[in-house]
Design a protein around this nucleic acid. Structure first.
Lengths: 336, 336
DNA sequence: CTGTTAGCGCCTTCAG
DNA sequence: CTGAAGGCGCTAACAG
């Protein structure tokens, strides 16, 4: 089953079939209709591989993420796909599993499939692999990594503004002793969030107590343990910001075990706004880093520049926003 | 950059390059080595589209799921990919979003990309689409849907045994009044789980109180509300099974709001064993439906039969297993 | 507006 | 064991 059989049935040339499939406007409505009917009755599906080979365009966009089981990513993947579909493009997803070697494999797959562009949503990226992509004129877009260059765009997250909003919120509730559970310090994004927190305290004229910054692993258990350590401090913070929601959820669990009520005894604010956060007990106040927005910007960064792959990349900025739910409240009057 | 340039550099024909790329054993080790070096220095990546077109095999396997943001799926996707990679195959993921129309789109993508087989892990499937696939000799494997046929395998979940284990566990703890929060009744799998629960009670000689079966939506909020309804019943159950973990988590939240302790006042058992369950407060006792196992069986069902696509499909059975954590305990002596 | 005809890059007989 | 050459299904000039 191929274009030729369709052509025969519709009594036109293969070129005309190709044209109507691709929505060319230089086909009479009548001929096009005939072709479409032939396609219908033959249940013909154009061969993507042949299309890509013939045209040079794959209509495929790569999306490289760290780990699909990390709750941050599924929504990103879904949104990216939705947008791609809207534009008639397809998505090739690849996981690095946080492993530099696998990143190599991922890039290799992108190269072999001749993607038209690739969104690299992991925090680290090998310079050599970038060159590999670059030398084949494949546009890239990164998430919060590096500066725009020829063919490379970047999506910057304005962590400062998001964390400022969180600190402001706590400050307005009367909190002055605010702790922070940061992510693993080898992650650029974790370092950035931590820095944003410190600077935010300064800006608000709040006391920075280095004791109240604990490191976690961006997972629930890490948040749990970090919170336990924080509870041992004296004075203990009345509110805690975390570098991501998973740790916030873990922290709330730790508090529960110690008979502490959130937000009565301690307020908690997460970061990311994963879906789960709306359903925890209490619902998590958090700083939303909108995945749909990131996905949309990433795709457009690639797609809109598809015709001049070597054009200068742009820098886009995403503003996180505070989502007030139930895990924050007035600072307790008396210390436990 | 193509096979021709590699051939020129290595001073062989394109056929020889093709052969060494494909690991044919009829190439001298020395020639192969020379070719590989040429590939290396040229940084040549074979064009997948051309390969598929030329060979007729795409080395691509489709994986159709309902929704990547449903926590059941990411691990399945990951495992499926891992296995595929081990066998040098690639995976094309498609989401239906629970929408029959999107299922059509998904199948269409599979057809256009000429997948070598497709794992359909959604609960419902259109007969017509199956024929579409079947008529093109594309092997399929379903999850707990229908019977094996020519070219179609099925992975059956032994719900009965999993739920039996859960009921047995509760029974041994002294529970006699056991409630059930079932999934949306339009889902086949939800109906099956419900039926398994009812039959399990019978087998154990436990009382079946229809009042104690409430319907949820397989999400946290549904579990939350169903549990609230269950709390209004008299007598109230001392233990509750849920059709999936998300609802169990929601149920635990509802209990917390009412000042009830799990498992002191009520025991809860989930189903699926999503990663999250290990981190809830308390950690969730659940019936594990191993996604890695499902993924492995699904892939093998497709891959092992790749050479005779019309061979009869097989039926595979997956045994769920009870994972005892902290959300179950002895039945309370006194009723609240 | 429609048909003709080269490729696209690789695989795969078929010879040698 | 290696090379030559046709073909996979479609697209994209180029004619007409």
């Amino acid at each position: 089953m191929n274009i030729k059989e369709v052509a025969r049935l519709a009594k036109v040339s293969t070129a005309t079939v190709s044209r109507t499939i691709n929505g060319s406007d230089k086909v009479t409505a009548k001929t096009a209709e005939r072709v479409r009917r032939a396609i219908e009755t033959l249940k013909f599906y154009p061969n993507t591989n042949a299309r890509a080979l013939g045209s040079g365009r794959s209509s495929l966009y790569g999306l490289i993420i760290s780990d699909i089981t990390n709750p941050f990513f599924p929504e990103l993947v879904k949104s990216f796909e939705d947008i791609a579909v809207q534009f008639g493009q397809e998505v090739l997803i690849a996981n690095t599993n946080y492993d530099p070697h696998r990143m190599e494999v991922c890039v290799s797959r992108m190269l072999q499939r001749k993607v038209d562009g690739v969104a690299i949503m992991t925090s680290e990226m090998d310079e050599r692999l970038i060159d590999e992509l670059n030398s084949r004129s494949i546009r890239m877009v990164f998430l919060d990594t590096g500066k725009p260059q020829k063919g490379i765009s970047n999506i910057a997250i304005d962590y400062a503004s998001g964390i400022d909003a969180a600190v402001e919120h706590l400050s307005a509730l009367g909190h002055t002793s605010i702790g922070f559970i940061c992510g693993p310090m080898q992650l650029t994004s974790a370092r950035t969030r931590r820095r944003a927190f410190i600077q935010s305290l300064k800006r608000k004229g709040l006391l920075l107590d280095n004791q109240l910054i604990e490191e976690g692993n961006h997972r629930m258990d890490g948040g749990h343990e970090a919170m336990l350590r924080l509870l041992g401090k004296n004075p203990r913070p009345t509110a805690v910001l975390t570098s991501n929601d998973m740790m916030a959820i873990g922290a709330i669990g730790a508090l529960g075990e110690h008979g502490l009520k959130v937000p009565r005894d301690i307020s908690i604010i997460g970061f990311d706004d994963i879906e789960l956060g709306a359903f925890t007990q209490p619902a998590l106040t958090t700083v939303r880093l909108s995945r749909p927005e990131i996905a949309k910007v990433a795709f457009r960064a690639l797609y809109d520049a598809k015709d001049d792959a070597t054009a200068m990349g742009a820098e886009f900025t995403i503003q996180p926003t505070l989502i007030e739910r139930k895990s924050t409240g007035p600072a307790p009057k008396h210390r436990a």
